[in-house]
């Protein structure tokens, strides 16, 4: 097994991508991997935000049109991910963090597929209808495992004790950011409602004045 992995890592293709002085080698593959991640996670995240009711104004059915871009993002990442893995497959095969990342991606993809199935199950559903509890459950699971996959990917290069400390720091930072986001969403919602009600009161007064 070890010899097989070494033969992949030492292949002409892997050596060229890893060692070429051209920026079109390793760094460009890495950049493509980031593009794929941004579209895959970013756009599936948009669907999840709607499913979870965070942005209820977004009509649900048209969001299905984002799926082809999400799928392209996935395949870009699958291909570039295989290339990047082949460059250091010997050390990655002994890296538990790498397996956490791969397992998280598998769970996130399963959750994405299930969320899609449940969210778009009824073609006649009203666009402002809340999503089913099943769709919401899979959306939450998908967001969590996308986060874990990104975290795993970032921490692959670090020593185990740094990984553990960093993961704890990320959890704390994300909790703080989510609480802040929750506060801001509620604040702006309340402000929008107040403004809407005060403008309707104003127009009622204008009508009364005319009468």
């Amino acid at each position: 097994m070890q010899e097989f992995l070494e033969s992949i890592e030492n292949s002409g293709f892997a050596t060229y991508i890893r060692e070429t002085p051209s920026v079109l080698g390793y760094s460009t593959v890495l950049a493509l991997h980031t593009f794929g991640m941004a579209f895959l996670v970013g756009l599936s995240g948009v669907i999840a935000l709607r499913v979870l009711g965070v942005i209820p104004e977004l009509p649900l059915t048209p969001l299905k049109k984002l799926m082809p871009i999400v799928i392209v993002g996935f395949w870009v990442n699958a291909i570039t991910g295989v290339v990047l893995t082949s460059l250091a497959i010997v050390s990655l095969s002994r890296n538990w963090d790498f397996y956490v990342k791969l397992a998280s991606i598998v769970v996130a993809i399963v959750a994405l597929t299930k969320m899609r199935r449940y969210a778009f199950a009824d073609p006649n559903a009203r666009d402002d209808a809340p999503s089913s509890p099943e769709a919401r459950r899979w959306a939450k699971l998908m967001l969590f495992f996308w986060g874990l996959a990104v975290l795993g990917g970032r921490l692959t290069a670090y020593a185990t004790y740094i990984r553990i400390q960093s993961a704890a720091a990320v959890v704390v930072a994300v909790m703080v950011l989510l609480l802040l986001a929750r506060f801001l969403v509620r604040y702006f919602r309340a402000r929008a409602t107040t403004m809407a009600s005060s403008s309707s009161t104003l127009s009622t007064r204008k009508v009364e004045a005319r009468v």
């Binding site: 991640m37 995240g45 704890a168």
Partner: peptide, 22 residues
């Protein structure tokens, strides 16, 4: 604090995802 740099990297990537998603 050895966790500061990887924390920054992870949040930078979360930022990229939010940027493209938004």
């Amino acid at each position: 604090y050895t966790w500061a740099w990887p924390l920054g990297e992870t949040l930078h990537f979360f930022g990229i995802i939010l940027l493209i998603g938004g």
